[in-house]
């Protein structure tokens, strides 16, 4: 499975993502937005938009990345999504997918954004490990345990949408992960780090192939990325299982 890791000025964690895809047996390639030419996207089986601070987070986080991507390859991107190829955005990448109208995608693809990832309720950059509860299986979460721990690092991650969109998302079970308190109860700050409605941390579109997640699975892929790696013996970071879920698709493709 060929994975395009999309880059532009200010993206980060593309190396972690590259290594994660390599580890699970995919063929990742970096693809800079400036080098994206007509017809290039269709060569790939999956599109990955990494985190970071694209274009300095000016205007709104992810807005410039989304506008430039839309201007360059909107029709191709639409086809990519309609062909039900996987698209995944982490952190800033999630913000880009929201701005593009690909998420939450209650009814496929929307021409205008249906949601926003607004400034955190705390008005601060929130950087810590959070607890997540898996709400459903998807191609991105099938192998993930019910409770995991991943790091967040963002200033704009408060998921907001109209009550109608939220209702539709919940009815279609589009929420993949929610923030949760360490004891399993409903999280207050800081366990819901940004004040997201319904503690939403990750969503998938109605087709099930576009996935956006605020915490960083690629920053918790190897166990040594976790602060307790010298104290607690384990083989994998929890982020590994997100990528492992994708491996199923790869194996199906190779068969």
């Amino acid at each position: 499975m060929k994975v395009a890791i999309l880059q532009m000025e200010g993206t980060n964690c593309e190396e972690e993502s590259y290594m994660a895809f390599k580890e699970i047996g995919a063929e990742p390639e970096y693809l800079h937005l400036n080098l994206l030419r007509p017809g290039m996207l269709e060569d790939y089986d999956m599109l990955f938009i990494p985190g970071g601070f694209s274009s300095g987070d000016y205007v709104r986080a992810g807005a410039i990345f989304a506008a430039r991507l839309k201007a360059k390859a909107w029709n191709e991107l639409r086809k990519f999504v309609e062909a039900e190829k996987p698209v995944m955005g982490v952190c800033n990448g999630f913000q880009v997918l929201i701005e593009l109208g690909l998420l939450p995608g209650t009814d496929g693809i929307s021409d205008v954004p249906e949601a926003a990832l607004a400034t955190n309720e705390s008005n601060r950059f929130e950087c810590r490990w959070v607890h997540l509860k898996k709400e459903r299986d998807s191609i991105f979460s099938a192998n993930v345990p019910d409770r995991i721990v991943l790091p967040v690092a963002h200033a704009e991650g408060r998921f907001i949408a109209s009550p109608r969109v939220i209702e539709e998302m919940e009815a279609q079970r589009q929420v993949v992960f929610r923030y949760i308190a360490p004891d399993g109860s409903k999280p207050d700050y800081p366990w819901n780090p940004n004040g997201s409605i319904n503690d939403i941390a990750a969503v998938v579109n109605s087709y099930g192939n576009v996935f956006g997640i605020m915490p960083h699975p690629e920053r918790a892929f190897f166990w040594y990325q976790h602060p307790d790696w010298t104290r607690i013996p384990r083989n994998r970071g929890d982020g590994y299982y997100v990528f492992e879920s994708l491996m199923r698709i790869i194996e199906a493709k190779n068969r």
Binding site: V59, I64, A67, A71, E99, A116, A118, I160
Partner: peptide, 10 residues
């Protein structure tokens, strides 16, 4: 406005 400057949700 439509392409970049606003997100109509907020």
């Amino acid at each position: 406005l439509r392409k970049l400057l606003i997100n109509p949700v907020i």
